[in-house]
Amino acid sequence: MSATGRRYASAAGALALVVAFAWLVAQQPLWERALSAIFPGSANPVYPGVTLADLVVRHLAIVGFSSGLTMLVGIPLGVWVTRPSGADFREVVAAAVDFGQTFPPIAVLALMVPILGFGLGPAIVALFLYGLFPVVSNTVAGIEGVPRTLVDAARGMGMGRARILLTLEVPLAARVIMAGVRTSVVINIGTATVAAAVGAGGLGDPIIRGINVQNFAYVLQGATAAALLAVVADSLLAVTERLLTPRGLEA
């Protein structure tokens, strides 16, 4: 198959996965039947009051906001420390994002509540900080992986710094940057379940409630949906990564 053909095929595959997931999530009766079958002793195996689809949408909102913020801040931050103006801050930024990832998000949540109250606010801050590391470090690695001789050739032909960044360094680093985004988002989907602890909602709700009331059908419900969501997001981002890889770099 041609390179273009492979690109389309993988994009189509990922889209099919998204559609299948959306369909599955919307089949509330199917979930009810399946959970009743797995937990025959349970009186109410299905998380009440809200459909799985609503939980998924809420989860996506949390992930979307926090990961969006991560990219919005992380990519420019990573680029900046590779510039002469930001080079001095490189170690500081590296240490800070590293700390952001090692610091347990559940603790960040707890610390944020007094400042931001319960709900979406602390969840987004915690997840944003937690996801920065792979985005920033991959951005730095991607930009620094662009051979110096290419930047040199570009300067020698009279390209300015901004143009070199936008037309040479970023396109050549895009694949590596995207790989960082992918890692960050996939981790975020799993980690976002703890956001339910501060009342942010999402797929963490049935998990936490299930643990509290000893109803493992709830836990299974939330965990399965979150895991499937992570798989789907991963494949979608893998395709994006591929589409962002310049043709000339394909094997």
Binding site: L150, R155, G158, P246
Partner: peptide, 19 residues
Amino acid sequence: EELRRRIGYVIQSVGLFPH
């Protein structure tokens, strides 16, 4: 920048943009 656009520059590693 202006100066360099008036001067052709060739290097050993060629430096063709791969993308």
